[in-house]
């Protein structure tokens, strides 16, 4: 499966640095722990190196394929079809007070 595995032993992506890891971890709110950073970064570098093969392809003029089907957006009539589901929905919630979802104090 040589041609399929061409990207299989990629050069790890050098542009994925420690700072990048911390930046993305903050954007995605994934709490990282000190002990895991090193291994994580080396794995992510390999994954990113693996997908970098795509950049060798000339895709000039090609429209990105965001949707597999050539659909247009369906539009629904402006009607109220939903009823109050607060009781059911909040039965799933970890912390509710007086119908409000409670979270730690946010300071703007």
């Amino acid at each position: 499966m040589n041609n399929l595995q061409t990207p299989g032993n990629p050069k790890p992506a050098e542009d994925f640095s420690d700072e990048e890891l911390l930046r993305v971890a903050q954007l995605t709110r994934l709490g990282l722990e000190e002990g895991e950073k090193e291994e994580l970064i080396s794995t992510l570098r390999r994954i990113i190196g693996f997908v970098q093969v795509l950049q060798q392809l000339d895709t000039g003029g090609v429209e990105p394929m965001v949707h597999p089907l050539d659909l247009v957006l369906p539009l629904r009539a402006d009607e109220v079809t939903e009823t109050d589901v607060r009781a059911d929905a909040q039965a799933c919630a970890p912390d509710v007070v007086d119908g409000l979802y409670r979270v730690p104090k946010v300071i703007e």
């Binding site: 993305v24 971890a25 795509l54 895709t59 090609v62 394929m65």
Partner: peptide, 24 residues
């Protein structure tokens, strides 16, 4: 993490859009 990175500033075009072009 990979997904957040390929969508982030500076990489979106080279990774996400490029992948979707190759997909086409």
């Amino acid at each position: 993490l990979v997904g957040g990175w390929v969508l982030s500033k500076g990489y979106f075009d080279a990774y996400y859009l490029q992948a979707q072009r190759v997909r086409r």
